[in-house]
Amino acid sequence: MKDTLLEARDIHVAYGKIEAVAGVALRVARGQIVTVIGPNGAGKSSLLNAIMGLVPCSGGLSLAGADIARLAVEDRVALGMCLVPESRELFTEMSVLDNLILGTYARFRKGERNFDADIEGVYDLFPRLRERKAQRAGTLSGGERQMLAIGRALMARPTLLMLDEPSLGLAPRIVREILRVVVSLRERGVSLLIVEQNARAALQIADYGYVIEGGRVVLEGPAAELQADANVVATYLGTGGSKTPLPPGATA
């Protein structure tokens, strides 16, 4: 893959005797949206957690050509990697603004002190957060919490942003708004790795996709090809139901 940003090689994750990820290899190129789809329990979230350093794994991991397999989570963040977990992990008793500021921790450690432009940039992406900047994160709606979780990650200025189930539990209108932002981030040069139960929505905006079953990659290819694959359609997309409308700039 040309200009690879993230490369994972033969990744294994086990919880006791249960192997959740069994030899997965994947790549994310700069400026790409890559999605990982598959059934519940396939190992998708475990894969993201392993890449972020949150769970032990074996195998090779590199970011922009640098070996990160043995780096601590904070060091991976400092190199430009961020994960928005499925649980979002917000500081619920703190305000929206304070949650955003906490996203600058790695940059603060490097000596940066002025983050006003970054905060305004997040508010431009998610105007609702500007309206609620003084509100406690715990009082936000589900969609607003997801916006805040993504916004906080963006405060670290990541080159690789990983999203674990960004549409989970959200209304279709909010999902479209989240997808719109994801597409706009790609246009700004952020590379994205997305785990998503909503396979149709994920493949509509992605450049490349991986299908994982039982902890293994069973199919991969350009997202447009996966959308047309009969097995993917039958298993994950179905033939009925309405498509999630593409946000402006998405490629189907």
Rank of each mutant, 00 (worst) to 15 (best):
G151F: 07
R180N: 14
E187Q: 15
T139N: 15
V190W: 11
V190D: 01
E187G: 13
A153N: 01
I150G: 10
L193I: 05
E177L: 09
G189A: 05
R136M: 15
V175G: 01
R186I: 10
R157L: 05
R186A: 06
Q146N: 12
I174V: 14
L192T: 04
A156I: 04
L168A: 13
L148N: 02
L193V: 07
P166Y: 04
A134W: 14
G142S: 12
R157D: 03
P172N: 07
R152S: 06
L193D: 01
G143E: 06
S184C: 07
D164N: 02
L185T: 04
D164F: 02
M155W: 00
E187W: 11
R176E: 12
G189N: 11
R188D: 07
M147L: 11
P166Q: 01
L168W: 11
S167P: 03
T139E: 15
P172T: 02
R152D: 03
L163I: 00
I178C: 07
D164H: 01
L161E: 05
G189M: 07
P172E: 09
S184W: 10
P172H: 02
R173N: 14
M147Q: 15
M162K: 04
S167L: 10
S184I: 04
L160S: 07
L179E: 09
R157W: 08
A149R: 04
D164P: 05
S184V: 05
I174G: 06
L148E: 08
M162I: 04
D164S: 04
L179G: 06
V175N: 10
